Computed example of a mutant assay.
Amino acid sequence: MEEKRKHKRLDIDVSVQLERLDEDGITTLKYVHVDVTDISRSGVGFKANVPLELHTYYDTKIQIWTKEVVDAVIEIVRCEEKEGVYHYGAVFIGMTDTDALKIDIYQIFNDL
């Protein structure tokens, strides 16, 4: 099977906090803790015990392996439910170059 991703996925032990962003720019104070299954410069895959709607946006705080926190806005683009656990795919739609670089640096170390 051909790899369609532009960026390599990483298996990573991180914690994520999601905060829902609504159309009017109002944030819904709904914090969700999720288990990240993979992350790349372009997006993140994670599991959660709560249903999230497709094409909704979340402000995320991702604590990475160095204990630094990456702030990013994600859009939920894929959802699959298995035995009460939801598996999500999301793309980063707002992230600073500095934060994207942190993920790139992790990739380099991970490949060594």
Rank of each mutant, 00 (worst) to 15 (best):
L52K: 07
K47W: 06
T28L: 15
L29K: 07
P51T: 07
V50E: 07
G43R: 01
G25A: 10
S40T: 00
E23K: 14
G43P: 02
A48W: 06
V36A: 14
S40G: 06
R20A: 09
N49A: 05
L21V: 11
R20S: 08
D22L: 14
K30S: 11
V44W: 01
P51C: 05
G43E: 00
K47T: 15
I26Y: 05
V44Y: 03
K30W: 01
E53F: 05
V50Y: 02
L54S: 05
L52N: 13
G43C: 06
V32W: 11
G45A: 13
G25Q: 09
H55Q: 09
T37D: 13
L52I: 11
K47P: 12
K30N: 12
G43W: 01
V50F: 02
S42R: 01
Y31W: 12
S42H: 03
N49V: 02
E53V: 03
E19I: 08
A48N: 06
T28F: 03
T56H: 13
T56G: 14
D22M: 09
I26T: 13
T56C: 12
G45Q: 02
L21Q: 08
A48V: 12
T27D: 06
V34F: 15
I26P: 09
E19S: 06
A48I: 05
T27Q: 13
D38M: 05
G45L: 08
L52W: 03
H55I: 11
S42F: 00
T56E: 09
G45W: 07
A48S: 12
H55S: 11
F46V: 07
R20G: 04
T28P: 11
N49C: 05
S42Y: 00
V34L: 14
R41Y: 00
T37G: 03
T37H: 04
R41K: 04
L29H: 04
L29S: 08
D24E: 15
Y31S: 09
H33A: 00
D22I: 02
R41H: 00
T37L: 14
